[in-house]
Each structure stands twice: as structure tokens, then as C-alpha cells.
């Protein structure tokens, strides 16, 4: 296996590089605009937010907005609640889903096709119609106004992540399984020694997607939590919304910035794990 070869085929010529660069920069006008709009809105005075034509640079810069949001709501409590909640669920979903996905990708059993169809099927029912039965169920467990309805089911895995990991696991060479078998190892050994180490990028991708979903999810916390101090950020932000045009957009956007920065930083620094992870080579001895 020649790792250095990989670089030579991946390199672009100068013209190609320029082309890619130009397209990427042009696209940023579109893709970075929402972030830019949030930043400038978060620094405006409320009376300037709606002025037309839009001012591209706040005048004056109202840095106070950022201190005010921390005075108005327990923002740090929300951040803390979210971090704990997201950390537990992402971990639970990633581990459980990996186990289940391994079974669907690598093990033969009667009924596995039907079960896999059910796993996929659970994604196809619009959540709006299962909301009430689910609430009744968790009410019966006496779990309302706690994170239990959101956290405990995560240990059963997520259909989306199971499906995603299954697709990745299908692409891992079966020879390695055979090798473990010949050495007398069981399925658990295969999973922990072969599949997991080889799927770090896939697992990291799954984790980041689950992270983003949990970080932003509003409806789950909205239905199950009622005590303000327990709110995660997604729900806590709504404290800055009001009906009938009374929403303080500058404060809402400042608070939203606080909510957006952690995932952005995480994405920026963690991408080497999920995007530039190890390469599964095609050479198989």
C-alpha cells in the first residue's frame, strides 16, 4: 500500500485550483449570508433592525446586546443543560446504533430483512401523529418535565444513524471478519477490534449529525419540559420571541449567536476526525 500515491492523484493543477477557489468564494456569498445577517442584527439597535434598505454595518455597534441577554435569561444554565443533554444522547445514540447497524450489515438471521424494514419504517411516520400517544406513555412513566423522555429512548439508537452506519459497515472488507474467525474470535471481537476502529470517520459523522439534531431540536424539549430552569438553548432562545411584532430581533439574534458558536467551533475543530479520518485502503494483500 502506497500512501504517498494518494497525494499525487488528489492534487489539482494551478488552473484547477483557481477554478475551485473562485467557485467556493462565490458560493460563500450565499452560504455565509445568514450568519452575516445574524451577526449584524445582533449588534443593531432594535429600531434599526427593520429599516429598509438594510444597513450592512450596524451604526452604532450595540455591544450591550450581548451583556443584556445574559442578564435577561439564565443563558449559561441553558448552555449547561444543553451540553449535558447533547453529550449523553449523542454518546448513547452512536454506541447503540453502531451495535444494531453491525448486526444488520454483517450478521445473517431469519427475519432480519423484516426488522430492518421496520427500522426504516419508523422514520416514515410523521412525528405529529405519534406526539400525543408518546406523551401519554411518558406521562404514565411519570417522566414529564424531565429529560428522561428525550434521553432514555436514545439508548435504543436512532433509525437514521443505524441506516447510515449500516451503509458504511457494508463497505468494510469481509476478509477481516474471516481473519478474526480463524483466530477463534467471536462477533464481539470482530465488532470491537475490526469494525469500530475502521469506522471512526463514519462514527464521527454520525455523532456530528446527531449532535446538530439534538442541539437544535425544539419540539422534543417543548413538549416534555415545563420548568424554565430545565430548558435547553433551543427552547430558551424562544424567551426572546413575542407575538405581534414585539420580538426584540437584536437580542434574539445575539442569543442565537451564543447557540450557534459552539456547534460551529465543534465542526471546525472536529472535522479532521470525521472528514479526514483514516483511509480504508483497497489493497487487501
Amino acid at each position: 500500500m502506497f500512501r504517498s500515491v494518494r497525494v499525487s492523484y488528489g492534487e489539482l493543477g494551478a488552473a484547477g485550483k483557481f477554478f475551485v477557489y473562485a467557485i467556493l468564494l462565490l458560493g460563500l456569498l450565499l452560504f455565509a449570508f445568514p450568519l452575516y445577517w445574524m451577526i449584524i442584527t445582533s449588534l443593531k439597535e432594535l429600531g434599526d433592525v427593520h429599516r429598509m434598505p438594510m444597513s450592512w454595518i450596524p451604526n452604532p455597534f450595540k455591544w450591550d446586546n450581548y451583556s443584556q441577554i445574559f442578564d435577561d435569561v439564565p443563558l449559561l444554565t441553558y448552555v449547561w443543560n444543553t451540553v449535558i443533554y447533547v453529550a449523553i444522547t449523542v454518546f448513547a445514540v452512536a454506541i447503540s446504533s453502531a451495535l444494531v447497524a453491525y448486526a444488520f450489515a454483517r450478521l445473517k438471521a431469519r427475519g432480519s430483512g423484516v426488522l430492518f424494514a421496520i427500522v426504516l419504517g419508523t422514520m416514515m411516520i410523521p412525528p405529529q401523529v405519534t406526539l400525543i400517544p408518546q406523551y401519554l406513555l411518558f406521562n404514565q412513566f411519570n417522566w414529564i418535565d424531565s429529560y428522561l423522555p428525550l434521553v432514555v429512548p436514545a439508548f435504543g439508537g436512532s433509525a437514521f444513524i443505524i441506516f447510515l452506519l449500516r451503509q458504511f459497515f457494508l463497505g468494510i472488507s469481509k476478509d477481516l471478519d474471516e481473519a478474526v474467525k480463524i483466530d477463534g474470535g467471536g462477533y464481539a471481537t470482530t465488532f470491537f477490534r475490526i469494525i469500530l476502529p475502521l469506522s471512526i470517520p463514519a462514527l464521527a459523522t454520525a455523532a456530528i449529525l446527531e449532535f446538530m439534531y439534538r442541539w437544535n431540536d425544539l419540539i422534543g424539549p417543548l413538549i416534555y419540559l415545563s420548568t424554565g430552569d430545565k430548558y435547553p438553548l433551543s427552547l430558551g432562545l424562544s424567551n426572546f420571541t413575542a407575538a405581534y411584532a414585539a420580538t426584540p430581533w437584536n437580542l434574539l439574534m445575539a442569543a442565537s449567536m451564543v447557540a450557534v458558536i459552539p456547534p460551529l467551533l465543534l465542526f471546525f475543530f472536529a472535522q479532521k476526525y470525521f472528514i479526514q479520518g483514516i483511509v480504508i485502503t483497497g489493497s487487501k494483500g
Binding site: L131, L218, I219, L222, I223, S226, T227, G228, S238, N239, T241, A243
Partner: peptide, 13 residues
């Protein structure tokens, strides 16, 4: 005990 919900989601809740 105070519960605050945004108007857009209050009917669902």
C-alpha cells in the same frame, strides 16, 4: 409554576 411557550408552538403543546 410558570411555563412559557412560544405562541407558534403553543397549540401543539
Amino acid at each position: 409554576k410558570l411555563t412559557t411557550i412560544p405562541q407558534a408552538e403553543i397549540d401543539q403543546r
